[in-house]
Simulated assay, not measured.
Amino acid sequence: MRVIGGMHKGRKIKSLKGKNTRPTADIVREALFDILGGKIAGSRFLDLFAGTGAVGIEALSRGSESAIFVEKSLEACLIIKQNLENLALTEKSRIIRDDAESALKNLLKQGEEFDIIFMDPPYSKNKIEPILTILRDFEPLKSIIVIQHAEDELFNTDGFLCYKRKKYGKSMLTFLIRE
């Protein structure tokens, strides 16, 4: 796997062996960052269900001011750490080993603010709505929320405006903002 854009374009990043994670495909990452465009530079980026950290690393490579990676798996957190060290991005990043709901609640209670929140939970495991409920109840929320999910996965977006959806194979990117 490689970084596909920005100052680290072409640099290799490690991924996990096996099928416990599903790294975001290059074509999906490229489309994601094409859609976000100029919103990346200087942004504060949150990568929930981070896996290898490829999406957050891509954001940093493209000029994001900072990125927080939230991942429950110790093995995945170690891979993210190695990738950040190899690209000299540790000063702009933080890794939180926790489940996404708990970490998000804690981050918001601590006053953390994010310009972009990306989540790529395990498909069809009902992980999206609990995260959206936390974000729905948080005032003020000005983040762009991007969800990568299975094309047939349904979830309640009440309180949010869906301003874009793009399908890539069996994956879908849904872009939300607060109504």
Rank of each mutant, 00 (worst) to 15 (best):
K167W: 05
E153G: 04
P23N: 15
R29I: 11
A76L: 08
Q82N: 10
S171T: 06
K92V: 06
N86M: 11
F118P: 04
K164M: 04
G10D: 13
A150F: 04
I95W: 05
G111I: 15
H8M: 08
D47T: 05
K105A: 01
K142M: 14
K39Q: 05
T174P: 01
C162K: 04
T157S: 15
V55I: 08
R178F: 13
D99N: 05
K167G: 07
A59H: 05
T24V: 08
G111V: 15
L48P: 00
N83G: 10
G38K: 08
N156S: 08
A25N: 07
R11N: 14
D99Q: 01
K12F: 12
N20Q: 12
K166Y: 00
M1G: 07
D47A: 02
N126K: 13
E85Q: 09
S143L: 11
E58R: 03
T90G: 09
L161H: 09
L173N: 04
K72F: 03
E75T: 11
V146L: 04
L107W: 11
P140N: 11
N20V: 10
K12T: 06
F160Y: 07
T133V: 02
I147G: 05
F69K: 03
D120H: 14
R2P: 15
K72N: 11
V3F: 02
T174N: 01
I57D: 04
D34C: 00
D99C: 04
K14P: 01
S171L: 06
F49L: 04
M172T: 10
E65N: 05
Y163W: 14
L89M: 13
G53P: 09
A41L: 09
G111F: 14
K164T: 08
H8N: 10
G56W: 03
G63C: 01
T24C: 05
D98W: 01
P23T: 14
S64N: 10
T21W: 13
A54N: 05
K105D: 01
